[in-house]
Computed example of a mutant assay.
Amino acid sequence: MRTTNIVKGLNKEFKRRTKPMEIVAGENSCYRLLAFIPLRIELAWRTAPIGKMNANLPFFR
């Protein structure tokens, strides 16, 4: 199975965040945590884009 470095990095971040947690408050809280991680990574990518980006893209509005 092939994968990209982005997917590998995201899976590594999931493991890094959830491994020290001995107990999770519930299934919904675990889902929230796993949804928050990629949103935070995306926000970091948006604030520090690499290269020239077209300013007309929807996420720059």
Score class of each variant (00 low, 15 high):
residue 24 V to I: 07
residue 1 M to H: 11
residue 50 I to Y: 02
residue 38 P to C: 03
residue 28 N to M: 00
residue 50 I to G: 05
residue 28 N to L: 08
residue 28 N to V: 06
residue 27 E to K: 15
residue 3 T to H: 00
residue 55 A to Y: 06
residue 21 M to K: 06
residue 10 L to T: 06
residue 31 Y to A: 14
residue 27 E to D: 10
residue 23 I to F: 06
residue 44 A to H: 04
residue 35 A to Y: 01
residue 20 P to G: 01
residue 47 T to F: 00
residue 24 V to M: 09
residue 48 A to M: 07
residue 3 T to E: 07
residue 32 R to C: 08
residue 19 K to D: 14
residue 14 F to A: 12
residue 61 R to G: 12
residue 10 L to H: 00
residue 20 P to Y: 01
residue 25 A to T: 08
residue 13 E to G: 00
residue 44 A to L: 13
residue 15 K to G: 01
residue 31 Y to L: 14
residue 29 S to E: 15
residue 44 A to R: 10
residue 47 T to K: 04
residue 20 P to Q: 04
residue 42 E to L: 08
residue 36 F to S: 14
residue 15 K to I: 15
residue 22 E to W: 09
residue 19 K to I: 02
residue 37 I to D: 10
residue 1 M to R: 07
residue 21 M to R: 11
residue 46 R to S: 06
residue 35 A to H: 04
residue 44 A to M: 07
residue 18 T to S: 15
residue 29 S to L: 08
residue 34 L to I: 13
residue 25 A to C: 12
residue 56 N to I: 05
residue 55 A to G: 03
residue 17 R to W: 01
residue 1 M to G: 11
residue 43 L to V: 13
residue 8 K to A: 10
residue 9 G to D: 14
residue 35 A to K: 00
residue 55 A to D: 11
residue 25 A to H: 08
residue 30 C to Y: 03
residue 50 I to S: 09
residue 4 T to V: 03
residue 4 T to H: 04
residue 38 P to V: 03
residue 40 R to A: 03
residue 32 R to K: 12
residue 23 I to A: 02
residue 32 R to I: 12
residue 9 G to A: 09
residue 41 I to K: 08
residue 46 R to N: 12
residue 47 T to R: 06
residue 28 N to Y: 04
residue 33 L to A: 05
residue 53 M to E: 05
residue 39 L to F: 09
residue 34 L to N: 08
residue 26 G to R: 02
residue 18 T to H: 03
residue 54 N to G: 05
residue 18 T to A: 15
residue 56 N to A: 14
residue 10 L to N: 02
residue 50 I to N: 09
residue 57 L to S: 06
residue 60 F to K: 10
residue 42 E to M: 07
residue 31 Y to M: 11
residue 11 N to C: 10
residue 9 G to E: 12
